[in-house]
Simulated assay, not measured.
Amino acid sequence: MQTTNIEVLGKAISLGKGLQINLDIAKLHTRTKIEVPIIIERAKKPGPTILITGGIHGDEINGVEIVRQIVAKGYNKPQKGMVICIPVVNIFGFISQTRQFPDGRDLNRVFPGTKRGSLASIFAYHLMKEIVPLADYCLDFHTGGANRFNAAQIRINQGDAESLELAKVFGAPFIIKSKRREKSYRDSAIKLGKKVLLYEGGKSLDLDRSITKTGLNGALNVMHHLGMRDFSKELKKSVKAKIKPAIIVEKSKWIRASYSGIFRTAVVLGKLYNKGDKIGSISDPFGYFERDVKAPNNGYVFCKNHAPIVNKGDAIIHMTIEE
């Protein structure tokens, strides 16, 4: 919780002030400097600091759009505390519409980074050194990779009661207690003592209004809960029905294709299926072969592969395991 003047990347930010600064650690092979805008708003009254990030993977557009809307609508201006928004962390990948950094590495697999490592590692190092230590809470927005479309979900650290409470406040349909991936942003931030909510929704290179709306409302819910700003009016407008309690996922399973061919999904995200229910089919392109895909257990579907062509062993549907 910040109560005095602070400095970010050499810029002083006093109470009641806001500014945009640029993180320009890395350059392309052309010597072109690409700056990563960091938008900071600080209230006159002290309070918690929340860091809101999107686009750690450059092709995950839904996350970028959520953070963009927070800034565009002025929701990043708190009444207490400080809000730090980085709409596009991996601006290099965003420009080329790819997941990776220019050096071919996945930025979310090199944290906390090193001062003299790869290009992605150097960038991660400065983000962890200059920005993350300022935060008390982190909201990190992602989508499913490639053609995997995720239902709106919050991923939290196992055994963390406060993060579970915040995840419930966020209001996504699913809360997934997931193991921390070594060298990820979430893992590194948690090791620094930060509370991290990782939002997943939609798929890469796609923009889905339902997913972005859930993410935006979730961010407002969390800031409202932390006492940073009263969002009662904004949240009231978005509520059309009674919010159902989130489904907390303790165990889950990927269903993989038993055959190569054309995949037709028959599932609805968020729906509960019973063991043996048909959830899709796989066929050849010639009309001689077709096999049903059936649920191996009772469970809710929270991710499905939109790829029309699959190979044997491909992950096609992700569902919970209900006792």
Score class of each variant (00 low, 15 high):
I91Q: 05
M319Q: 05
A315Q: 12
F302K: 07
K45Y: 08
D208I: 08
L197T: 00
K304F: 13
N108E: 09
C303F: 01
G202I: 05
I211V: 15
N311E: 12
N298T: 10
P37Q: 12
G261P: 05
T49F: 05
R264H: 11
R256V: 13
D284Y: 03
K304V: 14
D277E: 14
P308C: 12
S178C: 06
K183A: 12
T265F: 10
K312M: 15
E165L: 01
G63Y: 02
S204L: 02
G313N: 13
R148G: 06
K177S: 00
S260Y: 02
P245H: 11
H126W: 09
R209A: 15
D59L: 09
L235E: 06
D314L: 13
A315D: 12
T53A: 11
R186L: 00
G215F: 04
W254H: 09
L51M: 12
T49K: 04
P133G: 10
F231S: 13
S121R: 02
G261I: 03
L19E: 14
V132G: 06
G261V: 04
R105V: 06
A152D: 14
Q153Y: 07
I211L: 12
G215M: 07
I86M: 14
Y259N: 04
D103H: 12
S163F: 03
L220D: 02
G171Y: 01
G55H: 07
L9I: 14
S210M: 11
A295M: 15
R68H: 13
K244H: 07
V89Q: 00
Y288W: 08
M228R: 00
Q20P: 01
P112H: 11
V301Q: 06
A246F: 07
K237R: 15
I262R: 05
G113K: 03
E130G: 07
Y75N: 02
I262E: 05
L205T: 11
F302R: 04
F123Y: 15
K11I: 14
N274F: 10
K77L: 10
P78Q: 02
T143W: 06
S252V: 06
M228G: 02
A152E: 15
L192P: 06
F174M: 03
M228E: 01
G299Q: 03
L28Q: 09
N62P: 04
N217A: 06
V267W: 08
V110M: 07
A146K: 13
I21C: 07
K73A: 13
E35G: 11
K253L: 14
S163Y: 00
I176H: 03
R186M: 04
P78W: 03
R109D: 07
R155I: 09
Y300V: 02
S178Y: 07
P112E: 10
V83M: 12
F123K: 03
K179H: 10
A152V: 09
N297V: 10
S163E: 09
E41C: 13
G215D: 08
D59A: 12
F123I: 06
S281I: 07
I39S: 08
T30G: 12
V169Y: 00
I282T: 05
L107Q: 07
K80D: 01
R264L: 10
G58R: 05
V239N: 10
Q158M: 11
S258T: 10
D106Q: 08
K236W: 06
K275Y: 06
N108R: 08
G16A: 12
R264S: 11
L139G: 00
R291H: 09
A120S: 15
L205A: 12
S210P: 05
L164G: 01
S260F: 04
E7T: 15
G10E: 11
D277K: 09
